[in-house]
Design a protein around this nucleic acid. Structure first.
Lengths: 336, 336
DNA sequence: TAAAGTCATGTTATCGATAACATATTTATT
DNA sequence: AATAAATATGTTATCGATAACATGACTTTA
C-alpha cells in the first residue's frame, strides 16, 4: 500500500470472473431476490476468490447516503471528549460509523449547510457557545435528522439536554436550606452555556432568597484550573461558609487546596459540585453533587437520532433529563 | 432536508451560470493557475450566488483519497475514549476529519484489508487484545501510513507506545525498595495487553527479588470495579502491606474501600497506582503512580501519522515513551 | 514570417457503485 | 395453445468530481 494504495477488486472484476453482468453481482451483494441459486453461487465464489469488498464511497455517491453519522462540535476538549466514545459505541450497534467534525462557531453554519454534500445519515450537534443562533441552525436543517446535545432549552431543535438552570438552582437552594448565608461560586467559561447558565442560576437563587452574592471566580471546568482559582479565591480573604462549584473536577482540586490551607470540608466549608463525576463518591468526603452525565446524554441523543433515522415519523422533541441532587457528605449546616 | 435531502449546487450548475465549462469551475475551486482573472471572477460570483460547496464524496471517488484519517479500535470503552478527542483535535489542525471505526478482533483483519476502499489518508490502530497477530496486520498494511497506538513493543508497525513492562517493574520495585515484602496486585482485564503486561511484570519483579506473589485480583480498570474487587480482596483476609493497582481509577475506589474498612493509606497499606490520572495529585493522600497518559500517546501518534502523510520519507519507527514514576504520598516503608 | 511555445479553455473518459428501464426465459392462467 | 405474469438477467445512464488529452488564440523566438 504505497501513497496511492492498490485497487481492490470491483463488482466488474467479480462479474468478469463469474461470467455475469456487474449488475447481477450488485444484486448478490445486496441480497436481492431475483437471482437464481446457481448464479448466486457462482458470484459468491468469484467474490470470495477475489477478496471482494464493496466500495462505500462509490455506493454513497450514487445513493446519496452512507452508513455514517457525524458529530459536529465546537468543543473538542470539553464534554465532547466523553461523548465521542459513547456515540461511536451506539453507532457500532446499528452498524454505523461515527465521523467527528470539529468546527468553530463562525464556520458552523456553513458546515451545516454542506450536510447534503457529506451524505451522512444524520448529525449530532454539540455547540455550547452562548452566541450561537439556534434559529439559524433550525432553518438550515429543517426536517433533516439532527439531534442536538445539551443546548438551550428553547433551541427548537430535536435534542437531549439537562435543565442546568433548575439543577443549579437546586444545588444553591440546598446550601441555603442548610442555613448557609455566605455562599461562594466557582464557575467555568462564561462563553459556554454550561458556564453561563450555572452562574445565572446561582445569582438568581441567592436573589430570590434575599441573599447577597458571595465571592465568585471563574476557571475552565478542569481540575488544574480549580486549583488555580481556589488559591486566588482564598487570597481574596472574602468570607464564605459554602461553595457551589461548577464541576466535580474543579471541586476535587479546590477541596485539595482548601485542605492544604487548613480548611476542612464540610466542617468549615460545605461544597456542592456538579457532574457526579466517576470519582465523586470515592472522595473523602464523598461529594454532594448534581447529576450531569455527559455519557448518558450522548447515549440518549445517539439513540434518539437512530430512532429518527429508522422511523421518520418519530415525533421531534426535546428530551430534558430531570435534575438530581446527590446528597453525600461534603455539605452540612454551617458551624455556629 | 427530508429523508433524501435536496441537492446542493454542483460544478455543472456553477458552470452554466458562469457560462464556462465545468472543468474551468473545477480549476477555480482548486486554485489552479491557468484561469484568466475575468473568468475566475465570473466563476467565483456564480459560486457565491449558488452557495456552492464541493462534494467531498465525489472528489474522493475520483482521487481515491480524502481529507479523513480513521481510528480503528477494538476498544471503544477503554482508553480509546480519551484518545478520540485528542486525535480529532490534531486532525482539525491539519484540516482533516476523524472517522471512528470500532471493530472486533475477529473482524479486524478484514477491516484493514478494506482500507483502500474507504479511501482514507491514514489509519490509527488501537487494538489491545493479547491475541492479535501483528505479523498479519503488518502484511496487510505494508507501506500504508498506519500508526499503532500502545501495542506490543515488537509489533513491527510504526507506533507510539509505553513500555508498560518496565513501568510496572519500576512500580513494584519501588515498593520492594521501601521494604515491603507482602505486595498485592489489582489488575485489569487479562485479555487486554494493558492488563496482561502489568500483571506479568508484577510477577516477574517479585520473583527476581525472591519474593512470593501476594494476593491478586482482577477488575476492568474502572473505578466501580475497583470497589468491587477491593471488597473481595479484603474478604479473603490475606495479608499485604502494599498494593500495586493497575489503574488510578481502581486505586481511587480501592483506597476508599480500605478507608471504610479502617485501613489507612499509606500507614497500613502503601498504594502505587497507574496512569497518573487527572485526579491523582488531588487525592488524600496524593497518589504515587506511573505516568501513562493516553491523551499524550494519542497526540504523538496522530502527529506522527501526519508526519508520514506529509513526507513519505519519514523513517518508520516505534516511539516508546519512557516510564516515569511519580512519587507522592501514598507509599512509605511498612510499619515495623 | 514560420515554427515553437505558452496560456486559456473545452471534450471525453473515469472512479465504483445503484437506478431505471429493457429483454429474454420460464411458469401460470384461461 | 395462446396470452399473461413472474423470474432472471442485461444495457445504459447517473452520482459529482478529477484526469488526460485536445484545441484554438496569442506570444515568443529564430
Amino acid at each position: 500500500m504505497a501513497p496511492n494504495p492498490p485497487k481492490l477488486a470491483t463488482i466488474y472484476d467479480v462479474a468478469d470472473l463469474a461470467g455475469v453482468s456487474h449488475i447481477t453481482v450488485s444484486r448478490v451483494v445486496n441480497g436481492k431476490q431475483n437471482v437464481s441459486p446457481e448464479t448466486r453461487e457462482r458470484v459468491l465464489k468469484a467474490m470470495n476468490e477475489l477478496g471482494y469488498s464493496p466500495n462505500p464511497i462509490a455506493k454513497t455517491l450514487q445513493t446519496r447516503r452512507s452508513q455514517v453519522i457525524e458529530l459536529v462540535t465546537t468543543d473538542v476538549w470539553g464534554s465532547s471528549a466523553a461523548m465521542q466514545s459513547v456515540i461511536s459505541a451506539v453507532a457500532q450497534g446499528f452498524d454505523f460509523q461515527l465521523s467527528i467534525l470539529p468546527t468553530t462557531v463562525d464556520a458552523l453554519y456553513n458546515v451545516l449547510k454542506a450536510i447534503p454534500n457529506r451524505m451522512v445519515a444524520g448529525t449530532l450537534l454539540y455547540a455550547q457557545d452562548v452566541d450561537l443562533n439556534y434559529g439559524t441552525v433550525q432553518q438550515i436543517v429543517q426536517n433533516y435528522p439532527l439531534v442536538q446535545l445539551g443546548g438551550r432549552l428553547q433551541s427548537g431543535l430535536p435534542s437531549v439536554t439537562y435543565d442546568q438552570y433548575q439543577a443549579s438552582t437546586l444545588a444553591v437552594q440546598h446550601l441555603i436550606d442548610l442555613g448557609h448565608r455566605e455562599i461562594g461560586f466557582i464557575g467555568g467559561q462564561q462563553r459556554l452555556l454550561d458556564g453561563r447558565i450555572r452562574y445565572e442560576a446561582y445569582l438568581d437563587t441567592l436573589q430570590r432568597n434575599h441573599l447577597k452574592a458571595g465571592p465568585s471566580i471563574f476557571g475552565d471546568f478542569g481540575a488544574p484550573s480549580g486549583e488555580v482559582v481556589m488559591k486566588e479565591l482564598l487570597a481574596r480573604q472574602q468570607p464564605f461558609t459554602a461553595l457551589f462549584i461548577s464541576s466535580d473536577s474543579m471541586a476535587l482540586s479546590a477541596i485539595h487546596v482548601m485542605r492544604q490551607a487548613g480548611l476542612r470540608v464540610p466542617e468549615d466549608v460545605s461544597v456542592v459540585g456538579y457532574d457526579d463525576d466517576i470519582f465523586a463518591s470515592f472522595l473523602s468526603p464523598p461529594l454532594t453533587t448534581m447529576v450531569n452525565n455527559a455519557g448518558l446524554l450522548a447515549r440518549l441523543a445517539a439513540e434518539y437520532l437512530f430512532e429518527l433515522l429508522q422511523n421518520p415519523q418519530t415525533p421531534r422533541m426535546q428530551r430534558i433529563l430531570l435534575p438530581e441532587l446527590i446528597l453525600r457528605q461534603s455539605t452540612r449546616p454551617p458551624q455556629p
